[in-house]
Design a protein around this nucleic acid. Structure first.
Lengths: 205, 205
DNA sequence: GCGATATTTTGACACTGTCAAGATTGATTG
DNA sequence: CAATCAATCTTGACAGTGTCAAAATATCGC
C-alpha cells in the first residue's frame, strides 16, 4: 500500500521536506498578516501536518522566529557585499547612498522580518539563537569595515573614531527604518527625501 | 452591613477607583516583567477584581496599552518643555545635548513603555487611540519647533529644511533608543560616548 | 423607597504554546 | 530479506490567553 516516490512531498506520514517547508510558510505568513498572526498551530495546518510536528524541527516558537530573522541578515549581508564590490574609488559616496536607500526599501518590504531581526521579542533577555547572534555580529563587522574605509578615504569625517561613527550612522539608518515600519513616518513618498537628508548629514563637507 | 467609607478602595463590590488602579498596576507590571507578561487576567487579579472588570474601563487590551503609552508621551513632553525654558541663548547646544542624554536615559529606564509609545503593536494598522495620536503629534511639533529655532540661530546647519533636519535627528535619537532598549547596544557604559558622538554629528561646525 | 444606571461577576468559547505517550516510517544492520 | 533502531509524526492533554453575553450588585437622582 506504499505510495509512489519516497522523497516526493505527498500526503504521506513522513513529510520528507518539513524543515524548509515550515520556514518558507512561516515567512510567508508573517509577511501576509504580521508576526502576531503566526501561530505554531496555523503554521502546521498550512503545511498540512499536525500541531506538534514543527517541534521536531524547531525547539521553540522562538527558535523558528530566530531562523526567519537569520534569513533577513543573510539578505542584507549579501546586499552590502554586492554594493561594496562595485566600488570604483570615485563613486563611493553614491554607492553608499544607494545602499542606504536599498536597505530601507528592503526593510520596508520585509517589515515583519526586520522587526524580528532587531525587535525586542528575540534580543531581549538573550533568547537569540547562537547562529543568529553570529551572523548579526558578522554583519555589523562588515558595516563597520565599510564605514572605516570611508572614513580613511576622507568621505566621512565625523571627528570621532570610526567605531563611534559606524554606531551613530547605523542608529540613524535603523531609526529611519523603525519609524517607517512602525507607521510613524507614514508618507512613504517623502521618505526618499528624508533618507537623502540623512546621507547628507553623514557626508559633511 | 455596609462597610465604612464609600470612596475607600476596600474589598467592596464597587472598587471605586478602578481606572487609575488598573493603569498604575499595568504600568508596574510591564516595567517588572515586560509587556508580554501583562495579561488582562493577571492585571485584574493584582488589583483584586474579576477577570472582565477592566473591560468596563478599557475597551480593549489595546486601549490599555495606548493609555500607558500616553503617559510616556506626557513625560517626554514635560522634559522637553522644562529644558527649553531653561535656554539662555548661550548654552543652547549644551541644553540640547542634555535633552538627548536624558531622553535616552528615560527611554531605557522605561523600556517597555517606550516600546509601546513607538512599537508596532500599537501604531501598525492604525489601532492607536485618538488621544494617543493627538499627544504624540503634539510632541513631534514641539520637537520640530525646537529644531527650527536651533536652525534659525545657526546652531544646526544641515543645509536642509528644518523639517527634514528634525526628522533625521529624531530618527537618530530613536534609533539609539531602540538599539539600546532591544539589547543590541548592550554596553551601557559606552552609550554616553555614542550619544555625544551623535550630538556632534548634528552640530556640525 | 424606587427605578435607572453604572459597575462588577460568573460562565462560556475559541484560541494559544508546548509537554508526554503512542503510532508510523525509512534507514541500518545482521 | 527480516529485525531492530532512530527519526519523524500524531493524538491527547493542560494551563493560559482575550473577550463576549447574561446575570448580579451597588450607587445615584428622584
Amino acid at each position: 500500500m506504499k505510495q509512489n516516490s519516497p522523497t516526493s512531498a505527498s500526503r504521506n506520514y513522513h513529510h520528507g521536506d518539513l524543515y524548509p517547508s515550515l520556514l518558507h510558510a512561516a515567512t510567508e505568513m508573517i509577511a501576509e498578516g504580521g508576526t502576531d498572526s503566526l501561530s505554531m498551530r496555523k503554521l502546521a495546518d498550512r503545511v498540512g501536518v499536525s500541531r506538534t510536528a514543527p517541534y521536531h524541527h524547531f525547539k521553540d516558537k522562538n527558535a523558528l522566529l530566530c531562523a526567519i530573522a537569520e534569513q533577513g541578515f543573510e539578505r542584507v549581508e549579501k546586499l552590502l557585499d554586492e554594493i561594496r564590490t562595485k566600488a570604483a574609488t570615485e563613486q563611493q559616496t553614491a554607492l553608499f547612498s544607494e545602499y542606504v536607500h536599498t536597505y530601507i526599501e528592503q526593510a520596508y518590504e520585509n517589515r515583519e522580518q526586520y522587526d524580528l531581526m532587531f525587535g525586542r521579542e528575540i534580543w531581549r533577555n538573550g533568547v537569540a539563537t547562537a547562529s543568529l547572534q553570529k551572523i548579526s555580529h558578522q554583519h555589523f563587522k562588515s558595516w563597520l569595515s565599510w564605514i572605516e574605509s570611508l572614513c580613511n578615504q576622507g568621505f566621512i569625517n565625523s571627528g570621532d573614531s570610526p567605531l563611534r561613527t559606524a554606531q551613530v550612522c547605523w542608529a540613524t539608518l535603523h531609526g529611519l527604518c523603525r519609524l517607517l515600519n512602525d507607521g510613524i513616518y507614514t508618507e512613504q513618498s517623502s521618505m526618499s527625501q528624508i533618507v537623502d537628508s540623512a546621507v547628507n548629514m553623514m557626508f559633511k563637507p
